[in-house]
Nucleic acid binder design. Structure first.
Lengths: 242, 242
DNA sequence: TGTAAAGTATCCCGTAGCGGAAGGGTCAAC
DNA sequence: GTTGACCCTTCCGCTACGGGATACTTTACA
């Protein structure tokens, strides 16, 4: 396939493809005698990958570096990119919430303190730097913690309500419908505020029993709740893995 | 308030504020004798507005032009920006769907035609130009306003609308075209705000009947609506499992 | 088989939106 | 009255291309 075809398929300009070739980011598999760039299917997949990175705000130089690394694993990359896209959506949701509040304020329906006028923006600035600088070499886990911290009053209330309900039923088997339904609520709630994959959900569950800070907090709602939730979450995640 | 305070509040750099002053985009209301920039609360609101535009990818020059227009109406601007943010989220959701499919493909669980590998990206290029180039000019404002309400309007409104419509048809069979059509709208709506797989959709449907809080809320639109939706959602999910 | 249109190539210059360092005033505190 | 945190104004640099200009190739079709 020649430049124009690729360009139209991927929705980028021909100039962009030239540029990527120039800087060695995406070099076509083949070049004709006349100098025409011929792209393969593999090239196309690479381009897709590049665009995912770009969507996440990675600079081209960084993308090149990552993808040229001999230990680069496409699958792992995709999964991490997906998680980062989830996070980006969360952030966008915050901006949306902010603008909705602002609209209400402009109608005089509500007052807004200055510090609330900018929630959602801060992270948008250099998303990759905070998140991914070290992560593409390491295996950091603790991100879930922050998510729970960033909650407003409404969320906090809902949060408590769910936990109280879970505490009430913590005697039943974690795989029972009762338990699974309630834990499903928890899952969907988390996805409202933060976007979790089943895998991430399961990971979070593990932390409930492995990290005493979590355990302590959760067990305030009822002795053994953390353990109960952890099990239920595992099962739920397993059943809901796409 | 001096630069640093504003910068921290809004999550931008001091240099950025300098720049905005330089190009006349955000000129502080007051300047001390020593040349210190002093920002007012009004300045802060303007900055917020600017950041919304930026989030939407407007170039600074355009933002300046729009906001300096004497017929500029803050409320209307906010509403339009909100709508464009919704659209941006939709587009991001498409990217997310694309990457999820790609992950499945990389596991060998599915094949993907080349043209599907890039859905979601194309629009990211010049979002404002198609939509807003002439519209921010000065006239013909309220016509788009109407459209906005019907097509992309406020989540809550749309939400209610869908439920009312579903309530109206809840007498028909859940597998009828009428029902499946409407439930499809619901499915797509959910995917605008949160990205649901058919499986997750089905799971949600189960919760409508198994969790009384859901049931109660939904049945406010019409007795038995929760049960109706639950069935329709199961069927829809089954038919749309890719 | 010839020719125009469409596609492609390589230069090369320009731009947006700041980042960051240099060099130098200012202000509140102790 | 000096220290340290904050502020100012240049000025240079950078990224990720856009957009010509100019010249060669390929394709369509008459």
């Amino acid at each position: 396939m020649k430049v124009k075809e690729i360009a139209e398929l991927a929705g980028v300009s021909v100039r962009t493809l030239h540029h990527y070739d120039e800087i060695g980011l995406l070099v076509p598999d083949e070049v004709t005698e006349a100098g025409y760039r011929i792209y393969s299917d593999k090239n196309l997949d690479t381009l897709q990958q590049i665009l995912f990175f770009k969507e996440l705000g990675f600079p081209l130089e960084k993308i090149k570096e990552i993808m040229h690394n001999p230990s680069f694993d496409r699958q792992q990359a995709l999964i991490r990119q997906r998680d980062m896209l989830y996070r980006k959506r969360s952030q966008l949701n915050e901006v949306i919430r902010t603008i909705e509040k602002t609209i209400q304020e402009s109608k005089g329906e509500r007052k807004m303190p200055n510090r609330d006028k900018f929630t959602g923006f801060d992270f948008s600035h250099n998303p990759y730097e905070e998140e991914a600088r070290e992560r593409w070499g390491d295996e950091a886990v603790d991100e879930s913690e922050e998510k729970v911290k960033n909650m407003n009053g409404y969320d906090q209330e809902k949060f408590n309500e769910i936990f109280r309900e879970l505490a009430r039923i913590r005697g039943v088997s974690p795989e029972s419908d009762t338990a699974q339904d309630k834990i499903g609520i928890w899952y969907h709630y988390l996805n409202e505020v933060g976007n979790y994959s089943p895998q991430a959900f399961e990971g979070l569950g593990h932390m409930y029993v492995n990290d005493e800070r979590f355990t302590e907090n959760i067990d305030q709602f009822g002795e053994g709740l953390a353990a109960f939730m952890s099990q239920a979450m595992s099962i739920y995640a397993e059943r809901n893995k796409s």
